[in-house]
């Protein structure tokens, strides 16, 4: 169908629609009363729970920081603290940016650009987060070992059981990271298609 044919059809459609009542007054008022549920509510809820959990652990490390009595354990402690505070900040920040895009005062062009921008940053963040969480596991184990068991992980002799625990830990972290990545993908999948279309432009 060519554009001119479409135009004729569209005009005919418009004329017919004008004569019909698609929605009544009462329904319009009911819609205005909806307590609007933001589409990012679910993921934001999980991210917020995660953030509270991270900050809770960060406070625990901070309060017990004096127990990290060697320079290398202190370094691990500082990195853990940084990770636990920065990660939730960025992940919630991107979600906030997505949900705060102003649909009523922006133009179509600006909205597309904003989605593109947030999407690019989110993808970069996702990739970084997966690698960082695996790295972080190796950083937090010595900190947790010291704070919970009072032992210096680096001075320990590694037996089979220890390697087994580390192995299980690695699998667990990869699983959790993949799960988190899955959530992000879920909310941005359709955006991906749209941005792909834009890239083709």
């Amino acid at each position: 169908m060519e554009l001119e044919e479409m135009q004729t059809l569209w005009t005919s459609l418009s004329q017919r629609i004008e004569k019909l009542e698609i929605i009544n007054n009462q329904k319009i008022m009911e819609i205005t009363q909806i307590k609007y549920k933001n589409k990012f509510n679910t993921i934001t809820k999980y991210e917020s729970i995660g953030a509270v959990f991270c900050y809770f652990i960060a406070i625990f490390i901070l309060l017990n920081f004096y127990k990290l009595d060697t320079w290398y354990l202190s370094v691990c402690g500082v990195i853990s603290l940084a990770f636990l505070t920065i990660m939730p900040y960025f992940s919630l920040g991107y979600l906030k940016k997505l949900s705060n895009i102003d649909l009523t005062n922006s133009t179509y062009k600006k909205i597309i650009q904003q989605y593109q921008d947030v999407r690019k940053k989110t993808i970069a963040f996702q990739k970084w987060a997966v690698v960082a969480s695996i790295f972080m596991m190796f950083i937090t184990i010595p900190v947790a070992d010291k704070l919970l068991n009072g032992e210096d992980f680096f001075a320990k002799e590694f037996d089979t059981q220890m390697w087994f625990v580390i192995g299980i830990g690695c699998v667990f972290v990869v699983y959790v990271a993949q799960w988190g990545l899955g959530w992000y993908k879920k909310i941005t999948n359709s955006a991906e298609q749209m941005l792909y279309e834009l890239d083709q432009d």
Partner: peptide, 17 residues
């Protein structure tokens, strides 16, 4: 703009229509 944002949406709201 709302239609554009809708393309990102994976979850539907309960409809009144």
């Amino acid at each position: 703009n709302t239609a554009l944002a809708h393309l990102q949406k994976s979850k539907r709201s309960p409809t009144l229509l």
